[in-house]
């Protein structure tokens, strides 16, 4: 049971790191536009990979088949 005297400080260290990362994220404006950030990874246009990932259920399909594959 005395291992707990070591484990708890280690846990505290982890929490400290987590809080530091959270502070950094807020300060670098990542929490400013939550709408956009949640979908921006799906707006893939650099490598033209298939946007056929299930994006939002309300997405209207342009044609009946799925969009084309990368060139």
């Amino acid at each position: 049971m005395s291992i707990i005297y070591v484990l708890i400080p280690i846990a505290m260290l982890f929490v400290l790191i987590a809080v530091a990362i959270f502070f950094w994220a807020v300060k670098s404006e990542q929490f400013d536009d939550l709408d956009r950030q949640s979908v921006s990874i799906l707006f893939d246009d650099d490598n033209q990979s298939s946007p056929s990932k299930p994006n939002a259920p309300k997405n209207e399909p342009l044609t009946k088949e799925q969009p084309e594959l990368p060139l």
């Binding site: 400013d32 536009d33 709408d35 956009r36 921006s40 707006f43």
Partner: peptide, 28 residues
Amino acid sequence: TCAACAWLIEHKVKTLNGVTQIGVNSTT
């Protein structure tokens, strides 16, 4: 009307010669 509009505006303006930076915030 949605996040895709932000994407659309950014990509349209990014391609203009002379524009160095563009960022659209769809919440505000």
